[in-house]
């Protein structure tokens, strides 16, 4: 949870990247990910120009670079595991290195995107790009109620710990299991009731099943320029190693 809160905090900044339309940034990131994904695994060095592009974007974002690099390292275990396997099995170290580098670079790009784009804006961008309104609304209400429900779960756990304070050793596993499932059922019920309450509140304010977007699209010339430039830069960075072997 700490990671996402930090990204949320960063997203309120005011760099060049922060001020762009969410859609321009999202499409650039997707192009970037495709460029990374299509780099031949046999030649991990071909990733260098693309990595340089990421470094440039990171500098433009004015985010604390080291912290972003370290925080995003949580994604490494998965590719490192499979990298190690392929290394041990085939002695193919460049394939292993490529797996790790590609994964890390891709995750960094997404982290940077979220560090310069507030989530609500990104969701509006998704809607404007044609993602069904229903899915976007589910995402919105998930974000809205996430902290509330998680807080509730934490309070329930604290209450359970208080009751256990005197009886920590030799607890009966079955009763613990029983209690955990009971707590989850209560949480389920509360969430269900919350959902009905929200539903009532929406109906009472005129909702009839279809969502209307408040923010009309505002894709400016600056966004177009950024998108064209980044697409060009990504293409060049991707193709450069092939042209000059």
């Amino acid at each position: 949870m700490g990671h996402s809160l930090r990204l949320d905090e960063w997203a309120r900044g005011a760099s060049v990247l922060h001020r762009l339309d969410a859609r321009a940034k999202l499409i650039s990131v997707l192009l970037f990910l495709i460029a990374v994904s299509t780099t031949p695994p046999a030649a991990p060095l071909a990733l260098l120009p693309i990595a340089a592009l990421f470094a440039l974007a990171l500098a433009l974002s004015a985010l604390p670079a080291m912290e972003l690099l370290l925080r995003t390292a949580i994604v490494l275990p998965f590719p490192v595991f499979f990298g190690l396997i392929s290394w041990l099995q085939n002695g193919n170290s460049s394939f292993a290195a490529a797996l790790v580098a590609r994964s890390y670079l891709s995750a960094l790009a997404v982290a940077l995107l979220m560090g310069v784009t507030p989530l609500p804006e990104l969701l509006r961008g998704l809607r404007a790009l044609g993602v069904p309104a229903v899915l976007v609304m589910v995402l919105q209400s998930l974000v809205r109620y996430l902290q509330l429900v998680v807080d509730h779960a934490l309070r329930m756990r604290r209450a359970a710990l208080c009751r256990d304070a005197g009886a920590l050793p030799r607890r009966n596993r079955q009763s613990l299991w029983h209690r955990a499932s009971g707590a989850l059922a209560v949480l389920f019920g509360r969430s269900y009731a919350r959902a009905e309450g929200v539903h009532h509140a929406m109906l009472a304010r005129g909702f009839r099943g279809d969502f209307v977007s408040l923010h009309p699209a505002a894709f400016t010339a600056r966004d177009w320029r950024f998108l064209a430039l980044s697409a060009l830069a990504i293409a060049l960075a991707r193709l450069a190693p092939q042209v000059a072997p």
Binding site: P120, L123, Q140, S141, V143, R144, Y145, L148, R194, G197, V198, H200, A201, M202, A204
Partner: peptide
Amino acid sequence: FQDSDDQLFMP
């Protein structure tokens, strides 16, 4: 509504 959190469902 009694619980304002039910009512304030937008971002």
